[in-house]
């Protein structure tokens, strides 16, 4: 996994609640393997008009936000399907941070395991940040994982919570399988105990 420490980048607002993972990547692209660049699938249908042309009103299509690496969204961002390719699509398109008042639980886990940091901030803070980046398209946000802070375009600094274990893995770019294998003795002991009653 790609490690994450700090980021100073353009933030694109997606000021809607309940943006689900079906919108982030429609189901017909789920058969593509990880090696395929998923940038092309990101919000595939939302960023197009019914005739297939680019929707000029969709924020990701606007010039000021073409280089955005942070998405700031409404509550319950990336709810729904467990498809990890929702994270891949954001990641391949350059995104490393998603800020929202709340997230779908599975997406949050998937993000932390793929180098995409989900940042939960109070709804009023997210609203204020969205207002700032909408008022000044291309405005930047600073995210500091070791300090657990987000610095909004107006200079205000907001702390956020992050699971210490997930933080450690993300800072070091660790993948959990290797770490879990270091607990082999404990797992094997558990299996001997557990297996007597719970055989398959």
């Amino acid at each position: 996994m790609e490690a994450f420490r700090t980021l100073d980048a353009v933030a694109v607002p997606l000021p809607r609640p309940n943006i689900d993972t079906d919108q982030i990547i429609p189901a017909r692209f789920l058969s593509r393997p990880r090696e395929v660049d998923h940038t092309q699938f990101l919000f595939h249908d939302a960023r197009r008009l019914p005739d297939g042309t680019q929707n000029p009103d969709f924020n990701l299509n606007k010039d000021a936000w073409r280089n955005a690496r942070i998405v700031v969204a409404g509550r319950n961002f990336a709810c729904g399907s467990s498809r990890e390719s929702a994270v891949w699509a954001l990641f391949d398109a350059g995104f490393r941070v998603a800020i929202a008042p709340s997230f779908g639980d599975i997406f949050r886990n998937n993000g932390m395991k793929n180098g995409l940091l989900p940042v939960m901030l109070p709804a009023e803070v997210v609203e204020a940040i969205i207002a700032q980046v909408e008022a000044d398209p291309g405005a930047r946000i600073q995210v500091d994982l070791p300090a657990q802070t987000v610095t909004a375009p107006d200079g205000s600094v907001h702390g956020f919570e992050v699971d210490p274990f997930a933080k450690h893995c993300l800072l070091e770019g660790l993948d959990e399988i290797g770490l879990t294998q270091s607990y082999e003795e404990e797992i094997a002991a558990f299996e001997r105990r557990f297996g007597r009653e719970n055989m398959r």
């Binding site: 498809r83 599975i106 886990n109 998937n110 395991k113 793929n114 959990e176 399988i177 879990t180």
Partner: peptide, 11 residues
């Protein structure tokens, strides 16, 4: 998610 599926497969 699929990274977790791989983790469960392995461990």
């Amino acid at each position: 998610g699929s990274t977790e599926v791989a983790h469960v497969l392995a461990t």
